[in-house]
Simulated scan of single mutants.
Amino acid sequence: MTTTKHQQLRSALESGRFQTAMAAHNPLAAVLAEEAGFDAIWGSGFELSASFAVPDANILSMGQHLDMMRAIAQRTSIPLIADIDTGFGNAINVSYVIPQYEAAGASAIVMEDKSFPKDTSLRSDGRQELVRIEEFQGKIAAACAARHDPNFVVVGRVEALIAGLGQEEALRRAEAYAEAGADAILIHSKQKTPDEIVEFINGWSGKVPLVLVPTAYPQLTEQAIRDLKKVGIVIYGNHAIRAAVQAMRSVFAQIRADGGIQNVNAALPTVKDILDLQGDAAMRKLESEFLR
């Protein structure tokens, strides 16, 4: 029997097999992430918002994010973890949202315990307002009840450290969300060192695996995370869009400085490289079979 992407992700979490996920804001970025050897794709709301040049504050609609997740899932063979922010509303909304993401090809969702509309966790002075624990437990339970495939993974994201509420509140919320049915807990921090996260991990019961996003504390390597034992997935949350911005800025600036493409052209991927990423070979095969 063929193993589904849902089963791949759940099996890894339940067996303790460490997984890496790279952010993507479109199918091309996702294809490149799979090509590089990542285990999963992070369907990043931050990256998608950035690609539209709007704030990561629920400005884009659920439909826009859902359509991109569907497009990414269709072009990759590894699990897709969809970032659904706060679930686009209350527990009732979540009940309708989950089947749509599952049908679109996502193998997991991550939902955070902030109020709607959210503000990005990455802003130094962001508006970090959390909902009541009981309310978010209801949203987690609704997400679990709404999935059709029991292998579909529901991850509860705890923002207590981001909001400055401390370890005790973060652990209290994480335990409550696991009790409500979350298959994993994403714990987030914007401290420049991993100390806060390590303290949380050391205090965690291990009831379900943890998920980390080490954007602010890059010195915490994959090996160091493995050594902490309780972490199932590490997500590189915004590196695709940052790499794209850096590359485009550099190339665009050189073209303007040089007055043409004579100096940048040789350093760029060839047009054939791009055609290959677009699936040109598969299209040629279809032409040979069906264009008579």
Rank of each mutant, 00 (worst) to 15 (best):
I201H: 08
I201A: 10
N202S: 08
N202H: 07
W204S: 03
S205K: 00
S205V: 00
S205M: 02
S205A: 10
S205I: 00
G206P: 01
K207Y: 02
L210S: 05
L210C: 03
L210F: 06
V211H: 04
L212N: 03
P214L: 15
P214N: 12
T215M: 11
T215E: 13
A216K: 03
Y217T: 11
Y217L: 13
Q219D: 07
Q219R: 07
L220G: 09
L220Y: 04
T221I: 05
Q223A: 08
I225A: 04
D227A: 13
K229T: 12
K229L: 03
K229C: 06
K230A: 15
V231N: 03
G232N: 10
G232P: 02
G232I: 11
I233L: 15
I233D: 01
V234L: 12
V234H: 05
I235F: 06
I235C: 09
I235P: 12
Y236C: 05
G237S: 14
G237P: 11
H239N: 07
A240K: 02
A240Q: 04
I241V: 13
I241Y: 10
I241L: 08
R242S: 05
A243Y: 14
A243H: 04
V245M: 13
V245R: 08
A247D: 07
R249S: 15
S250W: 03
S250H: 06
S250C: 03
V251D: 14
V251Q: 08
V251A: 12
F252S: 10
I255C: 02
I255G: 07
A257F: 02
A257I: 02
D258L: 06
G259T: 00
G260T: 01
I261K: 12
I261P: 03
Q262L: 06
N263G: 10
N263E: 12
V264G: 11
V264S: 12
N265I: 10
A267C: 05
A267N: 15
L268A: 06
P269C: 11
P269S: 13
T270F: 00
V271R: 07
K272V: 05
